[in-house]
């Protein structure tokens, strides 16, 4: 026998069936158990939040969601202000991020010179890699003072008197508030939406686009009448994915939202969000009811993001099936 046969021996020789089968079963069990662990974790998070928050839900009932008081001394907890702040900042984030992300996806699939697409795409994706605490510090020390000095006075002066949206832009320009938080969130979710959008844009069958070109469409008409309608469900899925991220983002928002428990119409005023309230107050929560209320907030946040992300995933699955992809 030549020497190579020896090293091939273990490949060619048939392993003893019995012991091989046993190891196979163990291997299967270990991998299956790890997969089940993922399921268990998600279930465990939901259950432990529900148990931890039970005291608050039992004590306050629906008033936990509709109540506006967050009174630590009087032991009264209503989460309307953080819920409102979470929704408003996420809405601002999406208003900024959705058009920008679609623009970026369009730029990267259609406009940019081919050599520059890779580097630009990586740069945009780096926005997602920057730790959220860095966004927070930058927001607190750089963006907030900039907003207070330049943007917010202008908004108050020019939009503050308008009929319906006026009240949104009134108040002292302090920089810390829902508008600043929404802008930071918007920047943070851009990479998540744009990378999905770019992915599906480039997966549109060339025949569709070429047909549109043959009919004399301009590039804008290809986007608005062929690409976007064709990828609509995936784009909506991407938006929900961004929404899920924005709702749950903690550190960046905690820095620039101001931890205020008063409800105010103005976007320039400090507010609170579910995640920021938990981050700010949990280690200070000294009563069982206080802690339970914060965990109940975590439960609400978890359920809402779970629903939003499930919708996102379902919409994205649909386009993948449409494009004949499996995962």
């Amino acid at each position: 026998m030549n020497p190579t046969a020896a090293s091939n021996g273990e490949l060619t020789a048939r392993a003893p069936a019995k012991s091989g089968e046993r190891v196979d079963r163990i291997f299967h069990l270990v991998t299956a158990a790890s997969a089940w662990l993922v399921l268990l974790l998600l279930g465990g998070v939901a259950v432990s939040m529900a148990i931890g928050g039970r005291l608050a839900f039992e004590t306050f009932g629906w008033r936990f969601v509709t109540g506006m008081d967050w009174d630590v001394v009087g032991a009264k907890f209503g989460a309307l202000v953080p819920i409102y702040g979470t929704l408003v900042t996420s809405a601002i984030a999406l208003i900024i991020a959705v058009p920008v992300s679609i623009g970026i996806a369009l730029f990267l699939t259609d406009i940019a010179p081919r050599w520059s697409r890779g580097p630009i795409a990586i740069a945009i994706e780096l926005l997602a890699a920057v730790p959220s605490i860095i966004y927070g510090m930058w927001g607190l020390f750089i963006l907030a003072p900039f907003m207070a000095a330049n943007v917010e006075p202008w908004l108050t002066e020019h939009l503050g008197d308008w009929a319906i949206i006026g009240p949104l832009f009134q108040g002292p320009p302090i920089g810390i508030g829902m508008l600043t938080a929404g802008i930071v969130l918007g920047i943070m979710v851009i990479p998540f939406i744009s990378s999905v959008a770019r992915d599906v844009f480039s997966a549109v069958p060339p025949a569709l686009r070429e047909s549109a070109v043959a009919l004399g469409s301009t590039r804008w008409e290809i986007l608005s009448r062929v690409t976007l309608p064709y990828t609509r469900s995936a784009i909506i899925g991407a938006v929900f994915l961004g929404l899920g991220r924005a709702l749950g983002e903690t550190m960046a928002v905690t820095f620039v939202l101001g931890n205020a428990h008063e409800l105010s119409a103005s976007l320039l005023m400090p507010s609170n969000s579910i995640a920021a309230a938990i981050a700010n107050e949990f280690t200070e929560a000294d009563t069982e009811l206080y802690r339970s209320s914060l965990i109940a907030l975590g439960f609400l946040l978890f359920i809402v993001t779970f629903i939003v992300l499930t919708i996102a995933k379902l919409l994205l699955l649909r386009i993948n099936r449409q494009l004949g992809r499996t995962s």
Binding site: G298, L301, F302, F306
Partner: peptide, 9 residues
């Protein structure tokens, strides 16, 4: 879903 779940939770 776990991938995008809020890390504070």
């Amino acid at each position: 879903i776990l991938l995008s779940a809020p890390s504070i939770v």
